[in-house]
Design a protein around this nucleic acid. Structure first.
Lengths: 102, 102
DNA sequence: GTGATGGTTCGAAATCAATGGAACTATCAG
DNA sequence: CTGATAGTTCCATTGATTTCGAACCATCAC
């Protein structure tokens, strides 16, 4: 049944821009403003949309903070449901991201 | 660089029907005629198309045999380039498919 | 309050992918 | 050769996704 979610996750990561965005979050949470896809500058409506796809697939968390937002990977949740998936697609969790502090 | 291929692989597997087809191949090669997606009967043009997407993403091999074709997963190639990916998405290689070594 | 910054949502155009019928190819059986 | 089986390719139609401007919302600084 979690298959429904798996295809959504795979789809979300099947776009180069979204994959790129997701990869910037492996090292830990990041201000949305700072999280920019390598490659041309992306209009904010587009970036917002891409992040929405990642969010709705359950890959990314998006929490308001000040006048901006903080993005973070849902590593624990994803690892629990699809063990090894993020490791193989985004790369393993980085050492400096393993402590619960930021 | 192999990123281009990764997004193609993820995209190919992001469709439930294609994921289903791919999963039937984890146990080893299979006649195309025998490889049917669980779920409604699929017109042959559609099935042929879906397999083409899997093939072009580099996931599946499709070789003629008699008047039909034999499908097989490109496990070794994929495992070499994206270690752990197929294991987490399709499930690990099954024992009966490990004819060569442990 | 005003203005600037950071994001979301709406809406419309453009692009891309999925579907499936029909025509076609190839192999095998008789 | 003829007929049946197994697939591919072509093509048109439908449907989904992408893109991005513009309008809108929220927060901070003054």
């Amino acid at each position: 049944m979690s298959d429904v979610a798996l295809t959504d996750v795979l789809f979300a990561l099947s776009d180069p821009t979204r994959l790129d965005l997701a990869r910037q979050l492996v090292d830990g949470p990041m201000d949305m403003a700072a999280c920019t896809a390598t490659g041309g500058p992306v209009p904010k409506a587009t970036k917002s949309h891409q992040l929405k796809v990642l969010r709705e697939a359950g890959l990314v968390r998006n929490v308001p903070k000040g006048r901006g937002r903080v993005l973070s990977l849902r590593r624990d949740e994803l690892d629990a449901v699809f063990p090894g998936l993020l490791d193989s697609v985004l790369g393993p969790r980085v050492a400096s991201a393993e402590q619960r502090a930021t």
